[in-house]
């Protein structure tokens, strides 16, 4: 019914692919998260987004990232195999097809990386950010508890946009 309603109004926007929007979110998130300086090898070291089990989001990031910077750092994408322990990665995106998300999330946290998922009850599995469908749009929810476990701080501006925030 949601769509029926939207048909009644007259907004006009080219629908974009889910993967493209998620890629844009991942890029944006990087700007709202504070990593301890020690998480980067040098002051110029790039910020790395690891992507596991989602070719679509990886491809979308490949298109989106070149030439962009976040807080003065270049930002790059690294494809991860399912089950691979992420090394020197700052954000880990686990696609829907991830076989064992709980352990992948834990591995990410131990590396001090921010774990992002796209499954129902993703936060309960332990991720810090979970994408959720909102009618025909995409929203996200945040767990400060999980971010804490990775040793990360999330800006209040980002929390204002989240659908749901799980406190520490």
């Amino acid at each position: 019914m949601a769509f029926f309603m939207s048909a009644g109004t007259t907004h006009a926007q080219v629908p974009v692919s889910e993967a493209t929007v998620k890629a844009a979110f991942l890029f944006k998130f990087a700007g709202y998260i504070e990593w301890p300086a020690s998480y980067f090898a040098t002051t110029e070291a790039p910020l790395v987004i690891g992507v596991s089990s989602s070719d679509e989001v990886a491809a979308a990031l490949e298109e989106l990232l070149p030439g962009r910077k976040v807080n003065g750092r270049t930002i790059v994408m690294k494809r991860l195999r399912d089950g691979e322990v992420p090394q020197a990665v700052h954000i880990v995106f686990l696609g829907r097809a991830t076989r064992n998300p709980r352990s992948e999330i834990r591995a990410a946290q131990q590396q001090g990386a921010l774990a992002v998922t796209e499954v129902e009850r993703g936060l309960e599995l332990g991720s810090a950010i979970n994408f959720v469908p909102v009618d025909d749009r995409i929203g996200f929810e945040v767990s400060l508890e999980s971010a804490d476990r990775s040793g990360l701080r999330i800006s209040a501006r980002m929390l204002g946009v989240a659908r749901k925030v799980v406190p520490r």
Partner: peptide, 13 residues
Amino acid sequence: LSLEQLTSLTVTS
């Protein structure tokens, strides 16, 4: 786009 704008995009696949 801002985070707010991203949440308002209609998606398709």
